[in-house]
């Protein structure tokens, strides 16, 4: 393991290795360089770029705290099909409402270009996530990732272009049309391909349950005529699985944690926009940032304790 051995590292791989946490980069570099060199020998630049991208993906996963000794990889991998199911099902319900609206052409035209753009972006995202769901069920993980990436990147400028033209409901537009897609896309990229490759029968049953749970609020809306009460229920019911997952985080059960991660889609689509309506978008953004900062601080603290176990307080 000499420095001379790393001087031959190809440029693309060198860039990819920069995604690894600095502390562990050296430990990974030698072996990755050996595999990469043989895998790309005699291959073109596109193949080499694909390999480098895959290495960078692994490095980013490590940087995000995945791929370590915990269950994070498994939780994320199991959450992906659930989150895709949830966002696709909610999207379908939304698309049905859009289709009903389209039957009344004057009402749709009355919405204005910005609102129309948001609705079209949401409908397009639904089609994409349905296709991604099909690809995941078929075991085509790579194709699912590519389609999810293209779909989300296509949706992003449409929603952003529409935002200035929206007088009201910007939080709904961002939350309803964009945040779930961004979240599921990141989840799809974060899951290790080797674990994600097969959606097992137990996962399919969970996916069916998630789809049904996503449709329950809409069914209730048709039966219960208390719009404000139902809106609160639809908006905040998604916090329950997320809270339950956090409460059970220390137990060695992957399913509740995966369901909690998937339920973040509902929080983003309904919970945060409703909170923004009840308070203000700035307050919600501040709360989300504060929560992210606390989570990050806890992660750093845990990492420091793992590195320096002697400093762990007695009894903790």
């Amino acid at each position: 393991m000499t420095n001379e051995q790393t001087t031959e590292t190809p440029g693309l791989l060198r860039v990819a290795l920069r995604t690894y946490p600095r502390a562990s980069r050296g430990g990974h570099a030698q072996e990755l360089a050996a595999i990469y060199a043989e895998a790309t020998a005699g291959q073109g630049r596109i193949a080499a770029a694909g390999e480098a991208l895959d290495v960078a993906g692994h490095g980013l996963r490590l940087r995000c705290g995945l791929g370590g000794g915990g269950r994070a990889d498994e939780i994320v991998a199991r959450a992906v099909p659930l989150a895709v199911t949830l966002t696709a099902t909610q999207g379908v319900a939304y698309a049905v409402a859009l289709a009903v609206m389209l039957l009344d052409a004057p009402e749709f035209a009355h919405l204005g270009t910005a609102n129309q753009l948001v609705l079209v972006a949401d409908a397009g995202a639904t089609v994409v996530w349905l296709a991604v769901l099909g690809l995941l069920l078929a075991g085509r993980t790579g194709a699912a990732r590519i389609l999810g990436t293209l779909g989300t990147l296509a949706q992003l400028p449409v929603v952003l272009a529409a935002l200035p033209g929206l007088d009201l409901g910007r939080a709904d537009a961002v939350g309803g049309a964009l945040l779930p897609s961004l979240f599921v896309w990141l989840l799809l990229l974060a899951a290790p391909r080797d674990i994600l490759a097969t959606v097992e029968p137990r996962d399919r049953r969970l996916m069916g349950g998630v789809a049904l749970f996503a449709l329950v609020p809409y069914a209730l809306m048709l039966l219960v005529h208390y719009p404000h009460l139902m809106m609160l229920y639809v908006s905040f019911v998604w916090f329950l699985p997320v809270g339950a997952a956090l409460a059970l985080a220390r137990r060695h059960s992957t399913v509740p944690a995966a369901l909690g991660v998937a339920a973040v889609v509902g929080v983003l689509r309904f919970g945060l926009p409703e909170l923004a309506d009840l308070t203000s978008a700035r307050t919600v953004a501040f709360a989300v940032l504060a929560l992210a900062a606390v989570t990050l601080a806890r992660r750093l603290d845990l990492r420091n304790r793992r590195r320096n176990p002697d400093r762990t307080p007695v009894g903790s």
């Binding site: 990469y36 694909g50 390999e51 895959d54 290495v55 692994h58 791929g67 990889d73 290790p192 674990i195």
Partner: peptide, 18 residues
């Protein structure tokens, strides 16, 4: 049918070692 790329293979081997 299954082609493991460098990063995926390395990650899988790390997990299997753990």
């Amino acid at each position: 049918r299954v082609r493991l790329r460098t990063g995926t293979l390395y990650g899988a081997l790390e997990r299997l070692q753990r």
